[in-house]
Simulated assay, not measured.
Amino acid sequence: MKAVSVVTIKKELQHQSKEELIALCLRLSRFKKENKELLTYLLFESEHEEGYIQSVKTYMDDEFEIINRDSYFYIRKSVRKILRNVKKYVRYSQKKETEAELLIYFCQILKDYSPSITRSTQLLNMYNRQLLLAKKIISGLHEDLQYDYNEMLEDLPHTY
């Protein structure tokens, strides 16, 4: 089965009743965890962006605590998983401010992580890529926000 375009879906949804739309959303939420997470964000957390950002930061803190530190292989694997999930949460929000703040926080945690990331080229590269991405996102924000986020970035070394 081939999926139809978003425009076609939008036109079809406009012809549905309120009850049918609710049923479609509930059915959609049963199929994938990501669909349910997105609906949760849209219904409960989109109005409280600061709380959402704080919950993602708490998630990062918890995940960094339980990383297996036996070898850099396990550390890299876990850090990639954390970053992948953070990017997914950023996609739900679609706000550049949220993305910049979460990427800066991710870099702060990674910088302070023990054992040091300076002994792993892959972790250093990941850190530098996320730092550059945060700078790029910040450059597209309003001047006042740019100043605030650049203040946060000053604490982070640009490259090791």
Rank of each mutant, 00 (worst) to 15 (best):
E34Y: 12
L28V: 09
E50H: 08
T58R: 08
A23E: 07
K10Q: 05
S114Y: 08
I67W: 14
M1I: 04
L141F: 08
Y149F: 15
S93F: 01
A3G: 08
I9A: 03
K57F: 04
L132W: 15
G51N: 03
K33S: 15
R27I: 03
I66R: 14
S120T: 09
L38V: 07
R69V: 13
Y127A: 00
N128R: 13
M126E: 13
L24P: 02
K2G: 13
F31Q: 10
I75E: 09
L39W: 05
K136E: 10
L26E: 07
I67F: 11
K2Q: 12
E12H: 07
R69Q: 14
L21W: 09
Y89G: 00
K81Q: 04
K96T: 09
H48E: 11
L38A: 06
M126T: 14
L102D: 00
M1F: 07
A23V: 04
D155R: 03
L123C: 10
L103I: 01
K18P: 01
K87Q: 15
F64W: 09
S5M: 11
K11S: 05
K88I: 08
S78N: 13
F44Q: 06
L13T: 07
V7Q: 13
T159L: 03
T118I: 14
R84L: 11
K135D: 08
L28W: 06
K95V: 05
S55C: 04
I75M: 15
R91N: 06
K10S: 02
N125Y: 10
L124C: 14
V86Q: 02
Q130N: 14
L102A: 01
I75F: 12
V79N: 09
R30M: 12
R27T: 10
L26Y: 03
E19Y: 00
K135F: 10
V7A: 12
D155A: 03
L123A: 09
C25H: 02
E12F: 06
S5N: 14
N35W: 11
T121H: 09
Y72Q: 10
L28C: 10
Q130T: 11
